[in-house]
Nucleic acid binder design. Structure first.
Lengths: 126, 126
DNA sequence: TACGGTGTATTACTCAATATAATACACTGG
DNA sequence: CCAGTGTATTATATTGAGTAATACACCGTA
């Protein structure tokens, strides 16, 4: 689950892929609060990407409260992935609707969908 | 749930918003199989959008088997939203993972998520 | 038959977002 | 001091999205 090992796929912006991978790594427990988060130049080198692109992802990551930066030192995974603002439930609804839409398109029934949800839920540690 | 009444929001490509709205309208039962699907020029006029943009969405819609085109006549909602190819489960997994990620970020528990899923599921007719 | 509406295709242009490139500065720890 | 860090700036190239203007073949109907 190393952040460096993500393989960039075309179709989605690179900085969004990094952003998503970082969220996943942190929320799944692969990166724990207090852990050092890879430096901008380090990620850029490993992914053979321009540092500015990584910087863009990191800026968003800090805005979400997932990571904090210590100038001169480096980045660190935050303690609390953040007390959430009021705008977030809308994003959950989007994800929910998109999921149900896909499931309906696949002619999946509710029990099967529930099972799949349970399965994915368990892939994250508490 | 008229397809014309969708209000285009910035951030996402227009043709994707049309594509999504059409999927939702069809899968939710608002547009039934055999129903006429709005013409390219009609949608373009109502949405004050370039016909080419609508055409792009329609092409994707036909590729998914949601709609069929009868040259000289118009478009029609397909009978079967399609026997699905093998590539689709991956898209379901994406939606599932995105949902769980959002839920974890909101510090939501599984029962609450299940309830929310149930709620969204019921918004679609069978 | 003529006409209007339909799907479809082509070419060209503008514009914003993305990504890269090359620097530069202030800070920290060893 | 020095290497590594976060951060900021300016410039450029590339890509995708959207618009624009046509054009063609097809269908139903008057």
């Amino acid at each position: 689950m190393n952040l460096f090992t993500i393989d960039l796929k075309p179709g989605a912006p690179i900085y969004e892929q990094i952003l998503y991978a970082a969220r996943k790594a942190i929320l799944s427990g692969a990166l724990k609060p207090g852990d050092a988060f890879p430096s901008v130049r380090e990620i850029a080198a490993q992914l053979r990407i321009n540092p500015n692109t990584v910087q863009k992802a990191l800026t968003a990551l800090k805005a979400e409260g997932m990571v904090e930066s210590l100038p001169g030192i480096g980045n660190r995974v935050c303690d609390r992935p953040e007390p959430d603002d009021a705008a977030r439930p809308a994003q959950l609804d989007e994800a929910l609707e998109a999921l149900v839409l896909r499931a309906r398109q696949l002619r999946l029934d509710l029990p099967s969908l529930r099972a799949a949800l349970q399965d994915h839920w368990n892939r994250f540690n508490d």
